Amino acid sequence: MNEDPTIRVLVADDHAGLRRRVADVLVAGGLEVVGEAASADAAVEAAERLKPDVALLDIHMPGSGIQAARRISESLPDTVVVMLTQSEDDADLFDSLRAGAAGYVLKAGNAAALPAALRRAVGGEAAIAPSLVTRVLGEFRNPKQGLFARRSPAGAKLSAREWEIMSMLADGRSTDEVAKTLFVSPTTVRVHVSTVLRKLQVKDRASAIQLLKTS
């Protein structure tokens, strides 16, 4: 007899073949797949209509899985959000957790372990890929340097990557230096900074940095 057959899962990924394989693994593990979606908007719509126990979301599907996670977490507090992704990037990991995800599972991991991970998430445990657990613990053990350090109203508006960039700029690094450190273009850094200025409703970097330091 399968364990916990009533756990209902929505699977959202823009790759139909992967959705089917994930659904097969979940059903074989005793879970019920109640719906599928190929984009963030479709995932939110399906979640609101089906009210699953778990919304299993790909991060980089059209419309952003992280945005879908935030919307589902806000509108459906009883639905547990778990990210299923190829990304081991810190910014994706921490942005997902800040958006309300209770789990972060890697597509390259052991597929057979996925049903158990979702059961843990429904049971109130964090379902995070073992290779990433030390990064999360490190953020909490070093709050002055971690991406979770800012729980202020201003800091909470920023994504993990935006906070990372602003921290580097506050340390006196130039746009080019930040870009080289993060392996992105200077234009990408400037775009992130512009987004921060808009979110914080300030006119320049100095004002943004001051606000983040004092709020």
Rank of each mutant, 00 (worst) to 15 (best):
F148C: 07
A68Y: 00
I128W: 10
A101K: 06
R151T: 14
R119N: 07
A149R: 15
Q86M: 15
A113S: 14
V54D: 02
G146I: 08
P153Q: 06
L147F: 02
D53V: 06
A91F: 13
L97W: 04
P143V: 10
G109D: 09
R135Q: 13
A108S: 15
R150A: 14
L76V: 02
G65H: 06
A129G: 08
D92W: 01
D90F: 08
T85R: 08
V80K: 04
K51E: 13
A69W: 04
A99W: 08
L137H: 11
L50C: 02
F148G: 00
I128S: 03
D95I: 07
A149V: 05
A127S: 14
D95A: 00
R151I: 13
L106A: 10
A126K: 10
A129S: 13
A129Y: 09
P62V: 10
G123C: 04
A127G: 03
T134A: 15
P52D: 10
A108D: 15
E74S: 15
K107V: 07
L76D: 00
L147D: 04
D92M: 01
L93Y: 04
A111H: 08
T85Y: 08
A101Q: 05
S75L: 10
A117M: 12
A117K: 07
G65Y: 05
G146Q: 11
T79V: 07
R71W: 01
E88D: 13
M83L: 15
K107E: 11
A116K: 07
S152D: 15
V80C: 08
P153W: 11
A116S: 06
K51G: 05
V81D: 07
A108C: 10
K107L: 12
A117V: 09
V54L: 01
L118G: 04
M83R: 06
I72P: 00
I59V: 15
M83K: 08
T79S: 08
D89N: 15
D95G: 05
V136Q: 11
L132Y: 12
P153T: 03
S87V: 06
R49N: 08
L114N: 09
L56V: 10
E139S: 12
S75E: 12
P130T: 11
N142P: 00
G100V: 00
V136H: 09
H60T: 13
H60E: 15
D89M: 11
A55Y: 01
G100P: 02
L84M: 14
R141F: 10
L57W: 07
R141D: 14
A113C: 09
V80L: 03
P143H: 10
G124E: 05
P153L: 03
S87E: 14
M61D: 06
P77Q: 09
A91N: 06
A99D: 02
L106H: 11
I128C: 04
L132Q: 12
S131F: 09
S73F: 00
A127H: 01
G146S: 11
L76R: 13
R70N: 02
P77M: 03
A102S: 14
A111T: 01
A126V: 00
K51N: 10
I72N: 06
V81Y: 01
L106G: 12
A113V: 03
K107W: 07
G65L: 08
V105C: 02
P130M: 11
S64K: 12
A55T: 00
A108Q: 13
Q67A: 14
T79N: 07
P153D: 14
L50K: 00
D92N: 14
L93G: 07
V105H: 04
R150F: 01
K51I: 06
A55W: 02
F94D: 02
